[in-house]
């Protein structure tokens, strides 16, 4: 069967010509590679956005290595990444697998869970900030009713950070749920039928069939989460502005602050370039470690 198909198609296909990649490559070159090169160049200059950049040698890079604010931001970004992954993965996996089934009311609930994804990040951040306002939001009457005074989740250093983690999860779980739903739908029903004949329960089937079969989906979703968390920005800007103090100043926000508050675009470029390299490295390592790149089939032997 396969030999026959190959024989028939051979004269026409083979590897597609490089011309086909052109629109993609041109787009990437213009909107990703070129700006990245410019950022790399700017990181070796002092520039305030007006006039011409002045060459600064390694100034920005040595400053970056010794900046306590940067060290703190790196720590916060890593914590945000780990916390987001640990919070979002289990929830979206379970919701996704559940939504792939055929239960009554599933479509309605799926649609409800899906709603946050339809809102823009800015809208999400503004809504949550209003909801958490200590004087005019629900905390103003819920707090005293519970005898807690007026809680100010966005005003406390520790709590503001976890609010960011929560809002990110609220916003992005629907996306990952969708990925897992798609992944779970791809699992052949015959696997479950065979397992049922062998007397496996729901938990065993989930553990031994669903999870292994979702391996590639887990990788995709995790890479998206990790890279997304490392570059998370808009919610922080709108909800906390990096504060209170610098307690939610993660790396992308620090980059914005250096660039567009202090107008040290050279230093901001050094931060940006570090971020690009680190995020790329982490994504590569994750793909390599999970064997995602080898494109091994999850259905070997079927």
């Amino acid at each position: 069967m396969s030999a026959h198909a190959q024989g028939r198609a051979a004269p026409r296909t083979g590897r597609p010509g490089p011309l086909w990649a052109l629109p993609g490559v041109a787009f990437f070159a213009l909107f990703a590679a070129l700006p990245m090169l410019l950022v790399a160049y700017l990181s070796f200059t002092h520039w305030g956005g007006l006039g011409d950049p002045a060459f600064a040698g390694l100034d920005n890079w040595t400053r970056l290595a010794g900046d306590p604010l940067m060290h703190r931001a790196v720590g916060l970004s890593l914590l945000l990444t780990v916390a987001s992954w640990a919070l979002q993965t289990p929830i979206s996996l379970l919701l996704g697998v559940w939504a792939a089934g055929r239960q009554r009311g599933r479509a309605v609930l799926s649609a409800v869970f899906f709603l946050p994804l339809l809102l823009s990040s800015a809208a999400v951040a503004i809504i949550w900030r209003a909801l958490l306002d200590p004087n005019f939001g629900p905390p103003a009457w819920i707090g005293p009713a519970l005898g807690l005074g007026t809680p100010d989740p966005l005003g406390g250093g520790g709590s503001a950070f976890w609010v960011i983690v929560f809002v990110a999860a609220w916003q992005f779980i629907p996306l990952h749920m969708l990925l897992y739903q798609g992944g779970a739908r791809q699992i052949p029903e015959t696997l479950y039928q065979a397992a049922r004949i062998d007397g496996a329960g729901r938990l065993r089937m989930f553990w031994h069939i669903t999870l292994p079969q979702l391996r590639n989906t887990v990788t995709t979703s995790s890479v998206l989460m990790v890279v997304g968390s490392l570059t998370y920005f808009d919610t922080v800007l709108i909800m906390t502005d990096g504060g209170p103090g610098t307690d939610t100043t993660i790396v992308p926000y620090l980059m914005f602050r250096a660039g567009f508050r202090s107008w040290e675009l050279g230093y901001a470029s050094a931060i940006a370039f570090t971020l690009v390299i680190v995020a790329t490295l982490i994504a590569l390592v994750m793909v390599r470690l999970t064997g995602f790149g080898s494109m091994r089939s999850t259905r070997e032997g079927m």
Binding site: D133, N135, G149, D152, P153, G155, G243, P244
Partner: peptide, 22 residues
């Protein structure tokens, strides 16, 4: 007070506290 850290001026938070007598 004890919950001023997240109050915004540009959105009118602080001014409203004064005008409402809080």
């Amino acid at each position: 007070g004890d919950s001023y850290a997240s109050v915004s001026y540009t959105e009118g938070g602080a001014s409203t506290l004064l005008s409402e007598g809080r």
